[in-house]
């Protein structure tokens, strides 16, 4: 049982690995197609710029590995920029195409509101459609603090995939989505204390 942490040069790979180590979850930082596809779960982390990330992913042919992995139905977690990369396009710097696994686009926080960007710090996640959502990962979570660091947010075309939303000075954005075997967080569970670690514990239960 190994978790692949997909390496495309993003800078928080080691934070994620540290976190898995603490939970005694075996993981490997890799960009090898074979290793990724044989793993029990895969994590697409991310801190960095969208364009640079997509460039690296294509150069390393990781887009192909990600598509193939997701087809297997095994758990696929995406964090922060990793979440944004799953969508069709981003307006960061110039227009960039994403992996297109989920429909929708990535936009700058705030719209025409005068907010401090990036949004950095602790904020709450609130479940939407509580009755219909019962994610394994966010079971018993609502109104919990998570750590955010981002300038962009995802705007999914299909509202039904939205799991939680977050309010940043009255600017409300999607803070997690779940679609089939894909779970993606705008916040950093690996940096969110015990509540964050629990998300990985839930992943552990799912694959063991």
């Amino acid at each position: 049982m190994t978790i692949a942490i997909i390496n495309y040069g993003a800078s928080n790979l080691y934070s994620v690995k540290n976190c898995l180590n603490r939970l005694n979850l075996k993981s490997i930082i890799t960009s090898d197609d074979e290793i990724i596809r044989q793993s029990s779960a895969a994590i697409l982390p991310g801190v960095g710029a969208f364009g640079q990330a997509m460039y690296n992913i294509k150069k390393l042919k990781l887009d192909y590995s990600i598509y193939k992995f997701i087809e297997t139905g095994k758990p696929f977690l995406a964090i922060c920029l990793g979440m944004q990369l799953l969508f069709e396009k981003s307006c960061e710097f110039s227009q960039n195409k994403g992996l297109g696994l989920l429909q929708g686009d990535v936009k700058l926080i705030g719209g025409n509101k005068n907010l401090k960007v990036p949004h950095i710090g602790w904020n709450k996640i609130n479940l939407v459609n509580r009755s219909t959502k019962n994610s394994v990962y966010l079971k018993n979570y609502d109104d919990d603090f998570m750590y955010f660091v981002h300038s962009y947010y995802v705007n999914p075309a299909d509202e039904k995939i939205v799991l939680t939303k977050t309010n940043y000075q009255d600017f409300i954005f999607c803070s997690s989505v779940e679609y089939k075997n894909i779970i993606a967080f705008q916040f950093h569970p690996e940096k969110s204390g015990e509540k964050g670690l629990n998300i990985f514990r839930n992943l552990k239960k799912k694959i063991s």
Partner: peptide
């Protein structure tokens, strides 16, 4: 540095 690691880093 911002280009490689992202502004927020």
């Amino acid at each position: 540095a911002a280009k490689v690691y992202g502004s927020s880093t």
